[in-house]
């Protein structure tokens, strides 16, 4: 069983592994970063730390209707390179879920680039996010998913079991 923190982005029910979440913060106002990819909402001050905030709402809806409703809630996810804030509409319960399934092929590309596992709950389908993929989106220009076949799976040739 994995413990996940559920979040809402528009109509989507998403989940982030609870152990990956450092904290949830509200009332942070991102300062925009010119030249950053559109998914970057800006920088926020989290108790003296400068944290990059990614607006999941802008990303998942597409840049076209970017004006996101309300200030949103910042889910702080520590990554090796520093903490990352994922801006969502709302944070829900913490649930225990099973191993889940790989994301189905039919998933929209924007989502597919971020979603790690899918959990079929009685009341809803939960899409579990992999925060490290968000970090990738924050780098460089263009928030397109990584080019096909770019980072290969770690299968070193000739490695004995």
């Amino acid at each position: 069983m994995t413990r996940v923190c559920t979040v809402r982005v528009g109509p989507l029910a998403l989940a982030i592994a609870a152990e990956a979440v450092q904290e949830v913060a509200q009332g942070l106002e991102p300062v925009p970063v010119p030249l950053a990819p559109p998914v970057v909402a800006g920088l926020v001050n989290l108790r003296g730390h400068v944290v990059t905030a990614l607006d999941l709402r802008a990303h998942l809806r597409g840049a076209a209707d970017a004006p996101a409703g309300g200030p949103g809630v910042h889910v702080i996810v520590p990554l090796p390179e520093g903490p990352l804030s994922l801006v969502v509409d709302d944070v829900g319960d913490v649930l225990d879920v099973g191993p889940g399934d790989p994301p189905p092929d039919g998933l929209a590309p924007r989502l597919r680039a971020l979603v790690d596992r899918v959990h079929d709950r009685d009341d809803a389908i939960l899409l579990r996010l992999d925060p490290t993929r968000h970090a990738r989106h924050a780098r460089g220009r263009g928030a397109a998913p990584p080019p096909a076949g770019a980072p290969p799976a770690p299968t070193p040739a000739g490695a004995p079991p």
Binding site: V33, A36, V50, V51, T52, E81, L84, A138
Partner: peptide
């Protein structure tokens, strides 16, 4: 600058009033 690779910036700071 956390996570961002933008060579025009040396980095970011928190100002006296708390804004980044």
């Amino acid at each position: 600058l956390p996570l961002l690779r933008l060579p025009v910036y040396a980095g970011a700071t928190v100002r006296g009033d708390g804004r980044p």
